[in-house]
Design a protein around this nucleic acid. Sequence first.
DNA 1: TGCGCAATTGCGTATCATTCGCATTTAGCC
DNA 2: GGCTAAATGCGAATGATACGCAATTGCGCA
Lengths: 137, 137
Amino acid sequence: MKEVQNSWPAGIKRTRQRQSVFSVLESSGKPLSASDICLKIEKNGEAVWLSTVYRALELFVKKGVVIKTNVMNNEMAVYELNRFKHKHYAVCINCRKMIAVENCPMEKFIPELEEDDFHVMGHNLEVYGFCKDCNPK
Amino acid sequence: MKEVQNSWPAGIKRTRQRQSVFSVLESSGKPLSASDICLKIEKNGEAVWLSTVYRALELFVKKGVVIKTNVMNNEMAVYELNRFKHKHYAVCINCRKMIAVENCPMEKFIPELEEDDFHVMGHNLEVYGFCKDCNPK
DNA sequence: TGCGCAATTGCGTATCATTCGCATTTAGCC
DNA sequence: GGCTAAATGCGAATGATACGCAATTGCGCA
C-alpha cells in the first residue's frame, strides 16, 4: 500500500516491523512514544507487537539512528529520528505539546565544566511552561 | 536516639515517618531515591513503609520543600531538599555520581523563548559524561 | 489532660512502561 | 529453493510508583 523503500540506516537488518517503526518516525514531526508508534502502525493496517517496537527502537538508539528522550518527571520515553541537528524542547505543562527550541545555550557553557575534571559527553535540556494555546493569562 | 526537632516546613503535619524522610534529606549532600531514603531510615533503626516514603515525598514536592528530578533516560526519580539555590547536575555515565553544577546557562536564554509565545515556568538541565574517577582517558 | 476525628500509615495489591524468555517465523546469503 | 542466525509474536516478569482500606496516630478542643 505504502511505498517506503527509500532510506534505510546501514548495518540494520531490514524487516517489515522495523521498516514500519522507521517510517512512522520518519514521517512524524514530533517525538513519539513506543505505544504511539505501535498505534500508528496499526492504523496503517499492519500489525506489530509492542515489545517488537521496543526492540526495534532499542536497536535504532544503539545505532544512533534514533534519539530517546524522557519528558517531564518520569512518564514515558519518546523517540525521534536523529536528524543530526542539535535541539531541545519546550514542553507545555498543560497539553504536553513539545515545541522544538532552535539554539542551545550550552555551547559556551561546556568548556567551563571540562575544567572541573568532568568530561562532558552530552546534555539534556528541557524547558517547561505554557504554550500559547494554554497560556493561563 | 537522634534529636531532630529543629526545622520543619510550615503547613505539613509532623509525623514520625515524615520527620524521618525529612531529616534523611536534610543530612544528605546529594539527591536520593525513595528506596535510598527508606534504607537510610531503616539503618537508623526506624521503620517506614516504602509507600509512606513516596507519599511523604509527594507531599513535600507539592509544598515546594523538596525537588524531584529524573536522572538519565528513565531509571528512577531522585529527591533532594529545596535549598532555593538554582542548580543542575553533571551525571557520570559510568558510576552515576551526581556533581552539582554551580551556574546556569539558561538565564540569558529564557527571554528569547518568551518571545516565541511560550511562557517559561522552569527548566531541567542535565549534563552527562565521565567524572574524574571514571574518565577513560 | 484526655477525647474525638480527620489525617496518616501499614500493608497488600494494582498499574503502567519496559524487558525477557522461548518457540515459531523470517531475511537474505549460498 | 534451503539453511541458519536473527527477529518476532506472545505472554509473563520486573521494577518503580500509585492506590485502597482498615488500623493507628497527631493534635485541636473541651
